[in-house]
Design a protein around this nucleic acid. Structure first.
Lengths: 140, 140
DNA sequence: TTATATTAAATTGTGTCCAATTTAATTGAA
DNA sequence: TTCAATTAAATTGGACACAATTTAATATAA
């Protein structure tokens, strides 16, 4: 019987899972002064790219559903970073809009990618290749 | 001002995080008939490779701490897959041992990697490269 | 020896994630 | 039209993750 396929070392998902958590952990102390968690941070990144979007659209971009986003967006609203408002054209849709404070946070956030990249030791070539492979999985 | 570093598309962590969750989601329905979650599954894989290990050793292998492992191991014990026992030589250590049922589950689990790999479309070459890059991050 | 330091698990509290269900609004077919 | 389907968020409940603290056992230095 061949049990090799059950060895941790031969898994692809396990290092994916472990390294994802490892890097999220790196973000924690860097984001904490901005009042953001990692999930809040990627949500803000999505909004900095495109404002006035529905929860559905945000969820598609972030690969998250309303079960995760609804409470998260409520917290961001409590922090006065966003406003949540129903779309008058179609009240089923909730539109998320950045506040002035939310927009201004972008400048403070500029240092985050810098600090992170100084923590992760990977060559530009490897980074590009990793990026390609991850999107390969994500896009199927 | 250059905001490109804040675009989701330019992140390395974001696709890592998103694809990790995506693949964990693939495991859910496959592991469910075995009574396992993904975290339980990797814990069992570690134990199938090496039995009679402490929580600390298990945590080092899985990159998890006692805050995650303690409740998880209690559940696995309730399922009669493992036994938890203090080491008489040093009562601080808790030793985790597979039961007969836990050992037998390995044969059932053999089909899991097969089913998963049929869901993920990646060439052997790309898989090998992805494996290398993830371990590069994990090992630093 | 004995008080202090260290170590290993367990506990506590917060923040996700997600499946499944519910609620409310809109669409569409008879 | 009108009632059944569809859609978008919100809610609920269960399972992690992890920082920080606590508890208990062991090691060590004065």
């Amino acid at each position: 019987m061949d049990y090799d396929s059950l060895k941790l070392e031969n898994q692809l998902c396990f290092p994916l899972y472990a390294s994802s958590r490892k890097i999220t952990k790196l973000y924690r102390p860097i984001l904490e002064p901005l009042g953001l968690t990692y999930t809040k941070y990627i949500t803000m990144m999505a909004l900095w790219e495109k404002d006035n979007v529905s929860v559905k659209e945000l969820g598609e971009k972030l690969y998250l559903d309303s079960g995760t986003l609804t409470p998260l967006l409520k917290k961001l609203e409590n922090q006065n970073l966003i406003i949540r408002k129903r779309n008058p054209e179609d009240e089923r849709n909730l539109i998320v809009t950045l506040t002035k404070k939310g927009k201004n946070l972008k400048d403070e956030a500029l240092k985050v990618p810098q600090e992170i990249s100084s923590c992760i030791n990977i060559s530009p070539k490897d980074a590009k290749e990793l990026h390609r492979l991850l999107h390969l999985i994500l896009k199927q």
